[in-house]
């Protein structure tokens, strides 16, 4: 049990470290294309980390293709939900900001 908890903690750490792949650089701005590529590598990294530690903890075995397949599908769904939810939130904020920009523009024209 203790060993499992330890591996869970280390799994969490490695998942968090994956943020460095998609984190913004202080030195330069990434383009949209670069960010998408980074997200793709982040997704691959998360798959590798979860599979590796899942096998270590004993959640599933590498020989059982069905189990591996289910885990990969679950990761894909959760990742997709996360990306879509983040994008939807940002899109909503962008719309609000665009309305404010339009309002500013109209105010400027009235002056």
């Amino acid at each position: 049990m203790g060993k499992q908890l330890f591996f869970l903690a280390v799994l969490s750490l490695f998942c968090a470290l994956g943020e460095f792949i998609i984190m913004e650089s202080e030195e330069r701005q990434y383009s949209k294309k670069e960010i998408i590529i980074r997200f793709f590598f982040h997704y691959l990294y998360m798959n590798l980390v979860v599979l590796f530690f899942g096998i270590k903890i004993g959640w599933f075995t590498i020989l059982n293709r069905l189990e591996i397949g289910i885990v990969l599908v679950m990761i894909a769904i959760i990742y997709l939900i996360n990306v879509i939810a983040s994008y939807a939130r940002d899109k909503s904020l962008a719309e609000k900001m665009n309305q404010k920009l339009l309002h500013l523009e109209n105010q400027q024209e009235m002056k």
Binding site: E24, E26, K32, D90, A94, L101, L104
Partner: peptide
């Protein structure tokens, strides 16, 4: 950003650009 100061009145529109950026 760290290296850009932008004029708000010159922005036509904003679009999301993943990872919380616009």
């Amino acid at each position: 950003s760290k290296s850009v100061i932008l004029n708000l009145r010159k922005i036509k529109s904003l679009t999301p650009a993943f990872s919380g950026r616009f």
